[in-house]
């Protein structure tokens, strides 16, 4: 078996070891989603719409964020910073292995579990709540939406690495991460669709990478974006992928120089 596939598999087993922890985490995710769900359910009148969103669209958006974030969330690679700090990085530097692919594989292993649970939860909620849901039938649109989710996944992964690489210079890798999580919650659109914000703010946000982590894939799925909007979105998010990749490369090289100079 390929080494990275094996890393993913091991991570899967690791997650199974901490089933209780994992289930608790999923419960948190579900409650968070339900809060937002019921809030919007109450706000939007049954037959009308609110800021351009009918009830089915909004509720699909909210339930969708839960699913998409199970795909995009890099739930393991936050360990990079810690590993740099405690010097365990050394274990990897003396092996013929790509450190980032290793962490990507770990994320994937964890992700597989999260996606599985997310599907399970949504099915249960669907059966219990019978929410009015918008189901996309256009295969091309579903495909584009999945492609954008892959881009989202890459973006999130690079962000996570960058935050971890702070560990080369400071032991405090958590403070910046918290700020990032708060920014992300807001700007990625996990609480509400971003286009209900004032136009000028919304345009500004579209230039940033955050919107492409949740909002963009969902909007494609809902079929609310024109072809041009989709292509522009793909274009901007791809540029961000390259920018972040380039940043990771440079900062990693710099950090490694520091690491191999000082040792740990």
């Amino acid at each position: 078996m390929n080494k990275y596939l094996l890393v993913a598999k091991n991570t899967w087993y690791e997650t199974v070891t901490y089933r209780f922890n994992f289930v608790m985490w999923r419960i948190r995710v579900v409650f968070q989603m339900l809060t937002v769900y019921f809030l919007w359910l109450a706000i939007i009148p049954s037959n009308g719409n609110f800021l351009g969103y009918t009830k089915p669209l909004m509720l699909t958006y909210i339930l969708g964020t839960s699913f998409i974030s199970s795909i995009t969330l890099a739930s393991r690679s936050y360990g990079i910073g810690e590993e740099i700090n405690n010097g365990n990085l050394s274990n990897f530097l003396i092996k013929p292995i790509n450190y980032f692919l290793y962490w990507f594989a770990k994320d994937m292993g964890d992700k597989a579990m999260n996606i599985l649970f997310s599907i399970l939860e949504l099915t249960i909620l669907f059966l219990l709540l019978h929410p009015p849901i918008f189901i996309q039938t256009n295969i091309l649109i579903i495909f584009l939406s999945l492609v954008s989710a892959m881009i989202a996944l890459t973006l999130y992964f690079f962000f996570n690495i960058l935050l971890g690489l702070i560990g080369f210079w400071s032991p405090e890798v958590w403070a910046p991460r918290f700020i990032f999580i708060i920014l992300l919650n807001f700007f990625a659109g996990s609480l509400f669709p971003l286009d209900i914000l004032p136009k000028s703010v919304f345009y500004f946000l579209q230039a940033l990478p955050f919107t492409y982590i949740l909002y963009f894939p969902l909007k494609i799925y809902l079929g609310q974006l024109s072809q041009i909007e989709i292509y522009t979105g793909f274009f901007i998010s791809t540029i961000w992928v390259f920018i972040l990749y380039w940043l990771v490369k440079i900062i990693w090289a710099k950090g490694l120089a520091v690491y191999t100079a000082y040792g740990r």
Binding site: Y13, T17, Y18
Partner: peptide
């Protein structure tokens, strides 16, 4: 390294 482990702790 006597004080650093490479083994996966939970496996």
């Amino acid at each position: 390294m006597g004080q650093k482990n490479q083994l996966w702790w939970d496996l």
